[in-house]
Amino acid sequence: MIKQNLHTHSLYCDGINSLEEMIESAIQKKFTVLGFSSHGYTPSESFGMDENRQNSYCLEVNKLKEKYKDQIDIFLGIEQDELYRINDPSQFDYIIGSKHYVKGEGYEHGIDCSKEVTEQLVSSYFNNDFLSFCQCYFDDLKKMATWDEVDIIGHFDLFMKFNEDESFLSFSNKQYLKMAYETLDCLIQNNKIIEVNTGAIAKGYRTKPYPDFHLLQYINQHNGKILLNSDCHNAKFLDEGYDIAMDLIRRAGFKSMEVLTSKGFETKDIDEFIM
Rank of each mutant, 00 (worst) to 15 (best):
D14G: 05
G48F: 02
M246Q: 01
K143Y: 15
E272N: 09
K192L: 07
D148M: 09
L228H: 03
L184E: 01
R250V: 08
G48Q: 02
S98V: 00
E60K: 09
L169H: 12
M246I: 09
I244S: 06
F92M: 06
N223R: 12
D50N: 14
Y68V: 01
I86D: 03
T8M: 11
R251N: 10
C186P: 08
T261F: 12
M144P: 05
G241T: 10
N17A: 13
E195P: 01
G48V: 05
V102Q: 03
N62R: 15
K174N: 12
H214K: 02
E164Q: 15
F254A: 07
N223Q: 13
S114W: 14
D269A: 12
I27C: 10
L6S: 02
L238W: 01
H222D: 10
I219G: 00
D112H: 06
K192I: 09
N55R: 13
D148R: 14
N5P: 04
R53E: 07
I152D: 03
F92A: 00
S167M: 12
I2N: 03
M49T: 06
L187D: 13
S123A: 14
M275P: 00
S90R: 06
F92G: 04
W147S: 05
E119M: 11
F31K: 02
F138A: 08
K174F: 07
D73W: 00
I153A: 06
I153L: 10
L228S: 01
Y125Q: 07
F162L: 10
S114L: 01
M179H: 07
S256E: 11
Y12W: 09
E60Y: 06
E60V: 04
I153M: 12
L227I: 04
K225W: 08
L158A: 11
D157F: 08
N173A: 09
E45C: 07
Q80T: 05
F162E: 09
E20R: 08
N197T: 11
E119V: 09
E272F: 15
K236D: 13
K161R: 15
K103R: 00
Y218N: 11
K142S: 05
I152E: 02
S230P: 01
L260E: 04
L248V: 03
M49K: 05
E21F: 00
L59Q: 12
I2L: 05
C113T: 15
K29W: 09
N163T: 15
E79P: 10
G40A: 13
E149N: 12
S256D: 11
I23Y: 01
L238A: 06
D129M: 14
Y137S: 04
Y125T: 05
R85H: 01
D157Y: 11
L34F: 13
C232F: 03
V122M: 05
N220G: 03
G253N: 10
N234G: 02
L158F: 14
E60T: 00
F31M: 10
Q175L: 15
N5W: 09
E272L: 15
L83H: 15
P89I: 04
I72S: 07
Q217Y: 01
D139S: 15
I111R: 02
I193D: 08
I193P: 04
F237P: 00
E79M: 13
I226H: 09
Y125R: 02
Y41P: 06
